[in-house]
Amino acid sequence: MKQKVEDLDWKNLGFVYRDLPYRYEAKYKDGEWQEGKLIEDSTLALSEGAEILHYGQEIFEGLKAYRREDGKINLFRPDENAHRFALSAERLAMPPFPEDRFVEAVKQVVLANKEYVPPYDSGATLYLRPFMIGTSNVLGVQAANEYTFRIFAVPVGAYIKGLNPADYIVSEYDRAAYAGTGQAKTSGNYASSLLPSVEAHKNGFADCLYLDPREHKYVDEFGGANFYGITQEGQFVTPKSKSILISITKRSLLELAKKQGLNPVERQITLEEAFNMKEAGAMGTAAVISPVGSITYEGKKHVIYSETETGPVTTKLYNELVDIQYGKQEGPEGWVQTID
């Protein structure tokens, strides 16, 4: 059933799927991408032999549209999502969707569903989920030769509500292999994190923190977000690894941290160093920034700054990032595209 605007409680949306009127679809066939269009049908028809069902050729993205105070709509760095989507496609042996068409398709979906972009003061956003799947029939292990690209939209509340410190546990599992698909945004990486996440939630934790899959010595990332820390000297540090997702939020915060004089750097971070950070947080499109209250490892809890209060550096970074996204503050050139 299609979601009616009048039935939405903007301040209590949660982070759940809703069927909006329009989505965008394009198909790859005979060696090229066909012309795409907006459609109303939210279902997909697949053969039982479709590649996605057997060998997992699938990639996706996540980005948001923000209602400004003047009523216009902002997109935050959609060109970066388009580029990451292309990189993910190449890693999964899929034909990259043209980056300029990706951005244009995002804009079409937002404008077609613009009445569902939450009000400025609601704290909610319109979440966009572009994805691509292999659809041709296969039996042996091989890449598909036909693909479907879609973008749908959903009004959502915060994935993690507010700047409330959360407790994490170091996982005994690996999220992705060192030279595997960790840098691609593909469903298999998230499927492998489901069991650890279920176990973490069962034990009262917000999520897992994963270590590098080679030595289990260095911090990689959380199940659904990247890690950053503020050292005792006041430096913004974030892991550099071949097994973690390329993060647009991380790239943005590295620039903002430099502007704020935090001398940011990407490098390996030992688990012991992470325990001794002045502040730490999870960062990503859905999470935005979520402060880390504690990290538990081998039964011992290590509190980072506070389990009840957010540190000043994290608060300042969060406020500047969100203000740019909502148009309250001008960001670096090219970061925001206003479309309405």
Rank of each mutant, 00 (worst) to 15 (best):
H83T: 07
D121E: 15
D121L: 12
E90G: 05
V156E: 03
V154G: 09
N164M: 03
S193I: 02
A176Q: 08
V103L: 13
P165Q: 07
N164A: 04
K64H: 09
R68I: 09
A177C: 03
T181V: 05
T125H: 02
N145M: 02
F131M: 08
Q57V: 12
Y168K: 14
I160Q: 06
A153R: 08
Y168F: 15
G162T: 01
A184V: 08
G188R: 01
A112Q: 03
Y173K: 06
E69T: 07
N164W: 02
E104H: 12
Y120H: 15
N164V: 13
K114E: 12
K72H: 15
I133N: 05
R84C: 11
L87A: 14
A89R: 09
A93W: 12
L75E: 09
D70W: 08
S187M: 15
G188A: 07
L63P: 01
A143T: 15
T148Q: 15
L139F: 14
R67N: 07
G162S: 04
T125P: 03
S171Q: 04
A184I: 07
K161L: 13
A184N: 03
R77F: 10
L128S: 08
G140S: 10
V138D: 08
A89T: 11
L139K: 10
K161C: 08
F152G: 03
P130W: 02
Y116N: 11
R129G: 04
G182Y: 05
L87K: 12
F152L: 13
N164T: 13
I59W: 08
G140A: 12
T125D: 09
L87E: 15
S171Y: 05
R77V: 14
A86S: 14
S193E: 01
I160S: 00
N113I: 03
L87Q: 14
F76M: 00
F102C: 04
A143N: 15
Y116L: 09
T181A: 05
L194P: 00
P130A: 05
F131G: 07
G71A: 02
